[in-house]
Design a protein around this nucleic acid. Structure first.
Lengths: 376, 376
DNA sequence: ATCGACCGGTCGC
DNA sequence: TGCGACCGGTCGA
């Protein structure tokens, strides 16, 4: 049906003897918009259609009358579409979404449309209540628990971020917002909460409290650490406390980031101040990163490790962990992250983990660090 | 005309006895979309209209027939609209744009619609050639030169970034891109070029070369500085070289940022390594920051300084410059930035400058730093 | 092609 | 409230 309007507008343009480039200029557009629109490559907005009608000095009635609606279909699709499928013998679901100019498909093992639909419905309801962070935490953890063989980072990257960025999932009162930017802020907090929730109970058994604290609590706890560095409490995301009777003392700060980029450097000074006093300073990440494509792969940002022949073409990012040792270690929830090989000497190591159990490399390192400081 | 369609769809919904919330659910939307749409608060997309037609099981022909087009108007407006006006006796122009949920108006002294139109036309043409960075540099510098009483940061923030983010200014082949993100990358590079272009000739007279260099050149120049820090050449934006005959030696690195946020910390380690060897390490910024409103003010991020009664409620950001002295100084092109007061003792200072002359606080500091190192 | 740094709307304190 | 840190699509090397 939109094709019908487009075709009619094209006919009228040709009838009027106006070139596409001329119409482009009249509407003060960048190159090729009219061509692209007439070729059905770019879907015109309502405003765009009206502007053409005006620019060609057409009559609205004639443009919109007796259109062919036979090809009309329900096109209000969501930003993420899920369909049950198999990859070889492996059950799972295909996740489809727009990725730049591509229509992208990603296979998620264990995933199913039925779980997705249930979770999404609740997610939309929760977003409607204005508790964005909690909505993300809850929806994500439910998907992770239901889909044990899925890469946790893929669920975050291909599903959560894309779902969240669909304006129709949010209340209409927020229609004007930039949900890409909103995701960044909300996702940052949500990820901190997810890390805390995941490790809380297991670490509690080992007399460790992991948590997010108010500014004043953070200032108090950090002050007791007597760091050789002017720490602004804002910089501390997730704190790890040793619990001895009623006394709680901070022995570590986890730096939590969905993706890394150059932003890893923000925390380096703080982290080095922690390390210099033998405090625990782990970097926890989803290590999300992919390129637009029809079959995107969430490769992460660390790249390759030293290869079998000993050739070292590691990225600066990897070297900052493995060689410079700015952090106690890096704990990635991306199954595609290449960890530091067991045999490799490293100042600190990159580990890959998931949400199957909290008894993992991160917890064990936290417990070891605490035991060392408090002499257990 | 869109109102006509909306009204008809509303009538049909009521006729069918379906509540707005029920239609919302059928379309799997967040709360209030149908209400908002029927109240003409949210402009529906073509897809959205079709989806409602389908959900209500309406007949396309009846919905689109015999509509009232009398109120139709040309609504393909640009992202930024400029209109000549006066503020008191001051000539200038009003700049209007969508800012979150607001329709925002900003007065720019010296500005005029005629200059704006000329520059914009060329800007669109330049963006069409694929030379995005150059397009931004050229358009911005032209506006700055033509509008001498305008705040340079306002032109960047309220005009350039908004113009650039309008998809219709770019070739249709790029229609799918996220121009908000595109602006970030392009603007970052453009600003570095603008700084270099602005200071190049003046500094050359003082035997100083300012420039952007290739990775290999940067590695060579930085190596000669023997910094106590593992510098990745990527981190160095704009280099300042002393020219002595055919010998060029780097004596400083300018850190250029449009806005600051927590990203100022990225460069702190590098900057401290420069300062510890008495190299020049200035921070140059547009200091762009405002809140959405009908009358936004590009206040920048540094906030207030120590007040007349000596009360110190400076932001951490300001203190990192004035007290911690992570950089040689901060040079802001935002006239609203509050500079470090002359009487205040400070490890390094915040200055406000503009493009009227390259003989400013930045150049003079660069020359002094070079003279100190090379004993002139 | 792969890799790296660019920045601003957002949300909660 | 105003302030602060959150992050990812992008562009050029």
């Amino acid at each position: 049906m939109i094709e019908g309007i487009v075709a009619r507008l094209k006919t009228e343009r040709i009838k009027a003897g106006i070139a596409t480039s001329e119409l482009n200029d009249r509407l003060r557009l960048g190159p090729g918009w009219i061509e692209s629109f007439e070729a059905n490559q770019t879907a015109p907005t309502v405003d765009f259609i009206f502007a053409i009608v005006r620019a060609l000095e057409l009559n609205f009635e004639t443009v919109f009358q007796e259109l062919d609606f036979s090809s009309a279909k329900d096109v209000l699709s969501h930003s993420v579409e899920v369909e049950d499928t198999k990859l070889g013998k492996q059950k799972g679901a295909n996740v489809r979404f727009r990725y730049n100019s591509y229509l992208a498909d990603v296979f998620i093992p264990s995933a199913s449309k039925s779980t997705f639909d249930l979770v999404v419905e609740k997610f939309r309801d929760d977003l409607g209540t204005g508790r964005k962070v909690e909505a993300v935490v809850y929806a994500y953890m439910r998907l992770v628990k239901h889909w044990p063989r899925a890469n946790p980072s893929d669920i975050w990257w291909f599903i959560m971020s894309r779902l969240y960025s669909d304006p129709y999932f949010h209340p209409a009162t927020e229609a004007h917002r930039d949900f890409g930017q909103s995701w960044k802020r909300t996702a940052g907090w949500a990820l901190e909460k997810i890390v805390v929730d995941h490790y809380r109970d297991f670490l509690a058994k080992h007399k460790i409290e992991i948590g997010i604290y108010s500014r004043s609590e953070k200032e108090k706890l950090l002050k007791e650490m007597k760091l050789n560095y002017h720490v602004e409490a804002n910089k501390a995301d997730v704190l790890l406390l040793n619990v001895a009777g009623s006394k709680r003392s901070c022995f570590g700060v986890a730096h939590v980031k969905a993706s890394i980029a150059e932003r890893r450097q923000n925390d380096q000074n703080f982290s080095e101040a922690l390390l210099s006093k033998n405090f625990f300073s782990p970097f926890v990440t989803m290590d999300c990163k992919s390129s637009p494509s029809t079959r995107p792969i969430n490769k992460g940002e660390f790249g390759i490790t030293i290869n079998a022949h000993g050739t070292d073409s590691r990225s600066d990012k990897r070297k900052e962990f493995e060689d410079e040792g700015y952090y106690s270690g890096c704990y990635s929830f991306n199954g595609n992250t290449i960890p530091t090989p067991d045999g490799q000497m490293a100042t600190s190591r990159i580990f890959v983990t998931n949400f199957a159990t909290a008894d993992d490399a991160f917890s064990r390192a936290a417990i070891r660090a605490r035991d060392k400081l408090f002499g257990r």
